[in-house]
Design a binder for these strands. Structure first.
Lengths: 208, 208
DNA sequence: TCCTTTTTGTATCGATCGCTATTTAATAGG
DNA sequence: CCTATTAAATAGCGATCGATACAAAAAGGA
């Protein structure tokens, strides 16, 4: 089989790579790795699990992705853009912070219980049960970024006079992220979507 | 050293056990095991970690506790009574559900960031990152029990007329547990107690 | 056609996992 | 004393962990 990224641009001319062509679709394999890490977490996913799920021998996996840790980092990056973007979308598209947060809480239950995809969120739960400090830091930073995004959205409304200046923007943002984290936990516990929707409904009552 | 539980009651007469006496304090060792499981979770805690932390050789550990799984189950049971009882206490001691829930949310930030103890909650996070279905089920059931306790407290208020009959008791209870779960996650991420208090403060606004 | 380069499949590596067989030490009952 | 019983200490079990050495296979460039 022909590899997709076999033809690369170097400078202004396209060149072909030498050597035996890759026998599998790297992007498709990465997507399967994303789902496995998403479902089981970093620590509970073994290289042999990945090798079996992606139908790759271990040397091919290491040759294509570098190793378990490098594969996870790459998987998280693609996940965030491909599957985890509903928070960014809400913050970008909704005109006010309350509307954006309401939309986030309204969409989260469905997002965390999608048919044919693992439950919960790789960024929120992928580092559970691991001692690896690099993994924890990577995901912790991503979560912190989302929290900051929400806080800034609230602060924008406050400076524009749409929200009272007395509001605790950081507290509100942390609250939203904590509720999402709780929803992820419940989803991974096997709670039905209906229950997540009830919880999100109650959580939305707080909002200004 | 002399073992504490070496003298057992059999029928109405006290008897002594034969054989070499145990050379360590079983209860103290169990408490150290609780703290290690609490800090690292079931999967990330190896039997060698336990052996080192409790200053026991592995055969002594297996002889006294049966194995990693049995030790964890026993640790969870003691943890729930020794460290995790603030939810039950609030539900028992406060006269109404809103008061109990407010107290739970008010106490949780300190509970999850106690000096000299691991962050978070063993019951809420101890099964993170494990495939072992027995472990997941044990902790999942405990969490479900707490949720039911809160729900019943709310329903008691409703039937007594202290709360409106239109309230979604299960949703409210699930909401409280989801917020606690989120607080645990933040605590284990290293968030300062002040941040947890802000989040809990926002979360309390929902309550009737 | 050769040579170089890259991927593939086989067959491991050393480390660590949970666990235990075996022997020695320490107590009580007789 | 001797025997029975229990615990401690040494050493190692088979399985799995992440990662690789090595050689055969498949492509392009000369």
């Amino acid at each position: 089989m022909l590899c997709i990224d076999r033809y690369k641009m170097r400078g202004m001319t396209s060149t072909t790579t030498r050597g035996r062509p890759r026998g599998f679709d790297r992007d498709a394999a990465l997507d399967q790795a994303i789902r496995l890490f998403w479902r089981k977490g970093y620590e509970a996913t073994s290289v042999r699990d990945l090798s079996e799920e992606l139908s790759l021998r271990q040397p091919s996996l290491y040759n294509a992705f570098g190793g378990k840790h490098a594969l996870f980092e790459e998987a998280v990056g693609v996940y965030d853009r491909r599957y985890g973007g509903f928070i960014d979308a809400a913050l970008d598209e909704e005109p006010t912070a309350p509307q954006a947060i309401r939309r986030i809480l309204a969409e989260a239950p469905a997002r965390y219980t999608r048919e044919g995809l693992p439950r919960g969120c790789l960024v929120a739960a992928g580092d559970q049960g691991t001692d690896d400090e690099r993994i924890r830091t990577t995901l912790s930073r991503l979560r912190e970024q989302k929290t900051d995004d929400i806080r800034r959205k609230i602060e924008t409304d406050m400076t524009a006079g749409r929200l009272a200046g007395s509001i605790d923007a950081a507290g509100q943002a942390g609250y939203v992220m904590a509720v999402l984290s709780g929803l992820v936990q419940r989803a991974r516990d096997g709670a039905p979507r209906r229950e997540l929707e009830q919880i999100a409904g109650v959580a939305s009552v707080v909002l200004p």
